[in-house]
Simulated scan of single mutants.
Amino acid sequence: MRALAEYVMRGRMQATLVVVGSAALPLLFWLSAAAGSLVLLRRGLGDAFGIVAWALLPALAWWYFGDPRTLLVLLGTLGLAQLLRATVSWRLVLTGSVLLGVVYAQVLGSVFQAPIEATAGELQKLMPQMLGQAREQLSEAEQAHLNALLVPVLTGLLAALLQIGSVLALMLGRYWQAALYNPGGFAGEIRALRLPPLPAILLLAGMLLGPSLGAELAMLTPLCSVPLAFTGLALVHGLVAQGRLGRFWLVGMYVTLLLFMQLVYPLLMVLAIVDSLIDFRGRQTPKGGSGSANGEG
């Protein structure tokens, strides 16, 4: 992957080939977004625009054929990259990704309205089996409210997947930038990532209170969970780097996350919230890879 990053940064033509080619190929839109974010982070928005503009053509073509993901992830990742370049703050990037997720949800809800509603209808049929006797204890109004939450929650889940994809694409671009110009810088940034108490509490409130404030706001539940989950991952990386946890914890975390996501994902969110209040890593300065990952001093 480093060789690909070196090729992208070799010149405008090479960067254009990678960004446009990846956008045109199926399921490689994340690579296009990562390469575009690398150019933006290193050279700025002006140079990146001339390259990314060509990638809009295949992205719009994919949208025309019913798949808006390429354009959404490309533009969303570049927006987050510009925010990171301006602030050098992953905390702001992750919290800002919630707003990006809301935009994703609005677009996906419009483009995929029929499939989402069909899936929600199938889930409604399975609800009696899934909830069992608990459903019988709900009033008719509560059952109707529960059914009304299905479409927004499904839309939010789809948007959260693109939100995660955008953050991961940006992380890949930032990792490439650090590998080329400031080795260790990206690792230092991620290990130091921690949400202050107020943003963490607001994200938790968005997850828990969104559905009760209105059916449409139920989409906030999956969207607000993404920054907390990434922060929980950063916490584990930071503790391992400080030697407070063995490396096997890191390997085990990713293995169990893949196998038992429904259990590990909420645990990461809980860790992020508790860390915002306690700060497990303390105020120690990282020993290596200090400074931002851009390598520009």
Rank of each mutant, 00 (worst) to 15 (best):
G297H: 14
G50V: 13
W249I: 07
M261D: 14
A205H: 11
V255A: 15
V107A: 09
V274T: 09
E117Y: 02
W54H: 08
L74R: 01
L277C: 10
V270R: 11
H145R: 15
R174D: 07
G289S: 08
G291N: 06
A5Q: 02
G185F: 02
G288E: 14
T16I: 13
L198W: 14
R2W: 09
M253H: 10
F280R: 01
T256P: 00
Q113M: 09
G156P: 05
E189G: 05
L78W: 01
A61G: 10
W30H: 08
W54C: 00
L195Y: 03
G96P: 04
V88L: 13
V88D: 11
T95F: 09
A179L: 12
G188P: 06
K287V: 12
T16A: 15
R244A: 13
G297A: 13
A178G: 14
L213S: 07
A200R: 02
A118I: 08
L25S: 09
P58E: 02
W62E: 05
D67C: 03
I51M: 01
L83G: 01
Y64F: 10
G252T: 11
S225Q: 13
L245M: 14
S110N: 11
R91G: 05
L83M: 12
Q124Y: 07
G291F: 06
A86G: 07
T77Q: 03
L161T: 12
